[in-house]
Design a protein around this nucleic acid. Sequence first.
DNA 1: TTGTAAGCGTTATCAA
DNA 2: TTGATAACGCTTACAA
Lengths: 335, 335
Amino acid sequence: MREPTMADIAARLGVSRQLVSIALRGLPGASSETRERVQKVAEELGYRPHLAARSLRQTKSRHIGVAFAPASAAEADLVEAIYPAAAEQGYQLVLSARTGTRSIRQAVDELLGYRCAAVIVIGSGLPDAKLRELADRVTVPMIALGASQRSPAFDVVRSAGDVGIALAVDHLVGLGHRRIAYVHCGAMPVAGIRMRGYIRAASAADFEADVVSVPGPDYAEESGAAAGRILLGRDELPTAVVTGNDQQAVGLLQVLSRAGIAVPGRVSLTGFGDGWAARLSSVDLTTARQDPEKMGTAAIQAAIRRIDQPALPPSVFVVEPWLVVRGSTGRPPGG
Amino acid sequence: MREPTMADIAARLGVSRQLVSIALRGLPGASSETRERVQKVAEELGYRPHLAARSLRQTKSRHIGVAFAPASAAEADLVEAIYPAAAEQGYQLVLSARTGTRSIRQAVDELLGYRCAAVIVIGSGLPDAKLRELADRVTVPMIALGASQRSPAFDVVRSAGDVGIALAVDHLVGLGHRRIAYVHCGAMPVAGIRMRGYIRAASAADFEADVVSVPGPDYAEESGAAAGRILLGRDELPTAVVTGNDQQAVGLLQVLSRAGIAVPGRVSLTGFGDGWAARLSSVDLTTARQDPEKMGTAAIQAAIRRIDQPALPPSVFVVEPWLVVRGSTGRPPGG
DNA sequence: TTGTAAGCGTTATCAA
DNA sequence: TTGATAACGCTTACAA
């Protein structure tokens, strides 16, 4: 009842283990007739390569580790996108989860235990200091997918939050809006980038920036609701509100709806990310879509580039989001 | 620039590799003084155990494989829950994703390549025939987390969908409802179980069962919306609608709201699963909560039980859900 | 308490 | 085109 090994195949055919290895991997050095016989017997025996043995022996690792939080829909989207990109380059992925009971450090340690050639750390919520600390422990190339700052210790792939927000602002300006507020929630590193996009877009479109700052928890529904309450307390509402995140927009939408403010009739609303919340038909949010496919491909490319050329200066690859226009934006009242 | 190995630690201390192994794993057979010195040097050198080497050598695997779809929030919840359960039993998890470009079979094959002692396949959406086909290939114990049918080929851990639905019905009956419809969406294996829960609860509470059948895609918003349109086309609305899934309930809620039907004022509404959709404050759905922690623990226990006793008859472990009462249910109009 | 020898299943190198 | 031999880093069994 042992799992069959290459030795079993070799014994059955009366050839050497090595030849079986060569035949199975399609390397030059085995006749096509041998190759066929080997494959047939492998099939019959139900042979499966022992991945641990392979990676123990192989000179260079063909594995790329990915540390992610399964609880985050956005990170799961990225994991999905990384798979085909890695496969195309001949790399296998090793997944390691960061959960409520398992720190990012534990997750990354496991990946290093598997001797991955590089490690991709997903998480725009991770503070830059934490990432640097991680990079100190990591002895292989590390890619921070979603980090906000460049760093000498790792490569960065992120989406252009400022561009996404600017797209939303420009869309609203195009519809005729001039009083466009922005909801800012400060603690997350990426939040600053997005806010700067708003400030710049406001200045470019020549309207007065109006930033509503709310406390965390970052980018959760509740912070959007808090922003809604602040706005409702004012003498006059803006005609549009740009938020840095879909869930925040949902919380804001909820507060506005309860107060009888029509969206987009009285106030237009935009989000960021195009996650499940935005697509919900009851929300139907105009939002800047991150491009998981491009980000996944870029992360794999960055990893491989650095595996091949470890001395390269650290890179930052910025993926451009685009605007998905849905039902939460329209002309300003009387516009 | 090689990664340090046990041999490096041993050389540095002038002891044997094996002693280092014993010391680092905390096995009896090393003096506490040696243990300390070994750990100190390991730390200094930045030693990390080579997981592939370890699992290659080890007699019995200490790994349990988990195949899951990152895109599914429910499956991600289960993955999160499995981690602590596995750690408690001294097992490491190996994750393998099923994605748009990667079949469940590929995912499971990889897990077998790592010689996992058992494989947990998450997915209530997988047809039973597919699971049986998988089980034929899998040479180690397999646990189907969320499967609807028992099978001689694998153990099953699932939540009691019928009980969850019955809880929702009983809650509504307790509020005074007598005209309670159920939205059924047929193709998914678990859907039948949930509907039976409704039928039984209706018969127990002695009201007439009223099943609204809609086409797929299974348990998506759209199927709930379709049910909503059917209900609105009737002469009279029921006072409550029970659905088999949160997202379906959201789609239905949306259609009702657009039609000016107050929830729960005119119609009460319940879901199943307690996923992100139910918790959204704009939805605030009364729903039967699956218990990911219990399911994760049960899956690990089932796996270990069968690793230790492979000849055991196949088991089905059913985890009871409970009702989370939120704002979508209330007394019937005039009740 | 420590050391010796062997081997896990594969790939790498070199010689036939 | 094939085969012999060593090695990857670790654990296991047993002897000192």
